[in-house]
Amino acid sequence: MSDWRDEVEALTLKGQIKMPYTWSVGETGSRFLVALRDEQKILANRCPLCGTVYVPPRKNCGTCFADIGTDDWLEVGPEGVVTAFTIIHQAHPLQPLATPFAYAIIQLDGADVGFVHILKDGWDRLKNGVRVRAKFGIERNGRILDIDGFEILT
């Protein structure tokens, strides 16, 4: 007895969903992005209860669940220290750059949490603890990539 399943051509069908979205940044995040765009400044804010300085700033502290007030703002960076990194070798269309490039977690001066961003070059000097500085893009549109990347100092 032959089994039709041994003969049948198992098909796959192609499809794609490409959906445009419009995400609300909110007032708190917008203030941060506007400062990046218009003043080339990196703003942060401080939880009034635990004192954690958040960058990007938050409307409330997730840990304390406390509202962060309008006066609890400060400027951090533009320099900081790399606390962890990876160098990307495998290309993907979603990545912001062609490979190789680096993603790093950067502790900006004055902040208590890490800031995730990219480094475009200087691999031979990249290690944890190295000091870096934000380099702003020439064309800025109010996005996190208005910082073009971080450059290794010295």
């Binding site: 979205y21 995400w23 940044v25 995040g29 990007p56 990876t86 990307i88 495998q90 993907h92 979603l94 990545q95 912001p96 993603y103 995730v116 961003h117 990219i118 996005r143 996190i144 990539l145």
Partner: peptide, 13 residues
């Protein structure tokens, strides 16, 4: 999508 997706994307990184 605003903060992490385009400056730190993917599971492996």
């Amino acid at each position: 999508p605003i903060w992490d997706r385009y400056s730190y994307s993917g599971a492996i990184p």
